[in-house]
């Protein structure tokens, strides 16, 4: 249990961080990446993933705290048939306090427990009637999140969702779809850029992503911009970018 004071401080810091990414012309992938990272820390989870619906209503993984293929697979199973899909469809949170007694989604459960996860909570990304995706927070221990943890993570998710929807939806609701599609396109470019970095430096995909993100933050560039330049091979990132950014 985190001490109350340090928790308050971290909570404010998380809101400031998420709000900070909502500047003009912000990067949706950056925002969702920050959201997932901050929520995992705040509620003391072990991993988190964020899914956004594409134009056909299929959930796509846009950000995750762990880029290893095994974790990505867990999230993708969840996107097809699992708590995140349910949270997306119903607009309500889904709690699995103990995976070993969960029988609604056997394939998802098998993958999640195979990766050592014993519990998880799925949060809808919603604003009024509109749900744009879901966030899953996974833990290696059994047990439910406290009410305040759920409230905090949902509030952070709500802030991010408002940020995505509010700005343009007033003018034209179809622009939300444009923006979400851009986020999905960015994610593909990030994967291509990770491949470029992995082949250039010999690191694994998770490290490749860290190099990419740290370079973008260090140089105050958009993650998607850096990824595009790397994928176009107009920019070669130093393998030491991570160390330098710290």
């Amino acid at each position: 249990m985190m001490a109350e004071r340090s928790r308050d401080a971290r909570l404010s810091a998380a809101f400031v961080k998420v709000a900070d990414t909502l500047i003009d012309d912000y990067d949706v992938v950056d925002l969702l990446d920050t959201l997932a990272q901050e929520c995992v820390i705040l509620v003391d989870s072990d991993a988190g993933g964020l899914l956004i619906a594409d134009t056909e209503g299929t959930l796509q993984l846009v950000a995750s705290t762990n880029e290893a293929a095994e974790f990505v697979e867990v999230i993708q199973l969840d996107a097809g048939e699992g708590p995140c899909m349910e949270a997306f469809q119903t607009g309500a949170g889904v709690t699995i306090p103990d995976m070993s007694v969960e029988d609604r989604w056997p394939a998802f459960r098998a993958a999640a427990t195979g990766q050592g996860f014993q519990s998880m909570h799925a949060f809808p990304m919603r604003l009024r009637g509109q749900t744009i995706g879901a966030m899953g927070l996974f833990s290696g221990a059994t047990g439910e999140l406290s009410e305040s943890d759920v409230a905090v993570a949902q509030a952070l998710a709500d802030v991010a969702t408002i940020g995505i929807l509010q700005e343009r939806s007033l003018r034209d609701s179809t622009l939300v779809a444009d923006q979400l599609q851009r986020a999905l396109d960015s994610r593909v470019i990030i994967e291509q850029a990770k491949g470029v970095i992995a082949a250039q430096t010999g690191v694994d995909m998770h490290t490749a992503f860290t190099i990419l993100r740290d370079y973008a933050r260090h140089h105050q560039l958009k993650l998607s911009t850096v990824a595009e330049e790397v994928a176009e091979r107009a920019l070669t990132l130093p393998a030491t970018a991570r160390a330098r950014a710290k």
């Binding site: 990770k194 250039q200 994928a231 176009e232």
Partner: peptide
């Protein structure tokens, strides 16, 4: 379809380096 295949995109990036060509 749907662009969910992360490894396809990662492999594309890796091959661009290996073949020294565009993605």
């Amino acid at each position: 379809v749907a662009g969910t295949r992360r490894q396809v995109h990662q492999a594309t990036g890796m091959m661009a380096v290996q073949l020294d060509t565009s993605v």
